[in-house]
Design a protein around this nucleic acid. Structure first.
Lengths: 222, 222
DNA sequence: CGAGCGTTTGAACAGCGTCAAAACAAGTGG
DNA sequence: CCACTTGTTTTGACGCTGTTCAAACGCTCG
């Protein structure tokens, strides 16, 4: 979705919900931006598109994805409320981003972020930290992908979400297929592992999209 | 290996080969450092050790690794001559680094690098670029680990080395086991895939550690 | 020449993927 | 309110890819 293609609220989504607002991109870094609404599975930006904006999830959830030429998909990350995404060094996005469910996203001009970083060392450092957090998370995820089995992957995923929500009960915004593409599995394997965990009493599944973690230790692997 | 434990050239490795030299950490960023020699499989730094230094490969090859508690190993990356590694944000290393074969590594104080970045925006930007390169490489590797099969992984690995060496003939400094832990496979699968490629004429294997790439397209997957 | 390590190869096995169908949930229109 | 549609999730049966275990091979270096 390119900004030139904005539609008015009266037309179909996406729509600009609010313009000219101050968006907090990092701690103590507020920049002018605007908020847009996206429908489920709607593209926020596509691979190869210019990196004109930096994004922040206001509500809902977003996934960033990459594809192999034959359609195999990888989900690089899930971005929940408050997360910043789409900040890349190059001129073109290496990922696409899509709304998982109905969601609101704030857009800030990338140039504005870069100018702020150039004039203020503290800001540059905070942006660096943002990237470094990202890097460390990616490294953990790489270890998961290269050396953990299906149960360990799903366990780590549930604990990751639980830690983010700071709660043993988690509502999953994403489908089994999304989880599978995040964990390098198939959706059937993810579903089977959920069922297995429930049978073993490690989790409860009140509904398919709600998980209550009962046994943290049994889901943990280091 | 902590610097306090340096031994003299007369004793066993590692040894300080040269002290007080200027090391080029990034383009136009030369900082005082010293060069140490390491024996095959010798640890350069360990997980959890303080991040007091930034490292640069002068000769030979280095691997950075992480472990799961039960011993499963992942190789995060191979670092060849000219590569900078060990630059992390936190106070403790999240990886260990070992010499693959006999090699020389330059050490520069991390504080010196940070001071340079703080006083010079251009330096900070170049360090940022270093990290961003790292990030992009990691993302590609994640796609490999999550969605590519054994042949595609080994193919990508060979092309990666070939691109770095800028040559269709590549000498592998690392063992089959190292390659396996980098690609998320077993050493047997790596060996079998090499043999398979050779049988199909995609590569030649004059010796186990030397590969000549014959058919780039057949090894490529996007 | 023999020891030790890395590599190759084989055979059996298992974990996860594939294909298929059924169960389930949510929304739509009669 | 209920039949119908559509999409997601679950479950089953089966097969393949890659692992495991084991043995043989080939270097290199004492």
């Amino acid at each position: 979705m390119r900004p030139q293609e904005f539609t008015t609220p009266a037309a179909s989504v996406p729509v600009v919900v609010a313009a000219g607002r101050e968006i907090e991109i990092a701690q103590d870094l507020n920049l002018p931006g605007f908020i847009m609404g996206f429908a489920p599975n709607e593209e926020i930006f596509g691979e190869e598109e210019p990196t004109d904006f930096v994004y922040k999830v206001i509500s809902g959830a977003v996934r960033t994805t990459r594809f192999l030429s034959d359609g195999r998909r990888q989900i690089d990350g899930f971005h929940l409320s408050g997360d910043v995404f789409g900040l890349e060094r190059g001129e073109a996005h290496r990922f696409s981003a899509e709304a998982i469910g109905e969601c609101e996203v704030a857009l800030v001009r990338r140039k504005a972020v870069e100018r702020a970083a150039e004039s203020d060392v503290a800001v540059a450092r905070r942006l660096w930290s943002l990237a470094a957090d990202n890097l460390e998370q990616l490294q953990d995820h790489m270890l998961l992908l290269s050396r953990k089995n299906a149960a360990e992957r799903v366990g780590a995923f549930l604990l990751e979400l639980s830690a983010r929500a700071n709660c043993r009960m988690v509502d999953l915004p994403m489908s089994r297929g999304d989880i599978a593409d995040y964990l390098g599995l198939t959706l059937e394997t993810v579903s089977r592992t959920f069922s297995q965990f429930a049978r073993e009493g490690l989790i409860e599944l009140p509904t398919p999209r709600r998980v209550v973690i009962r046994n943290v230790a049994a889901l943990t692997v280091n």
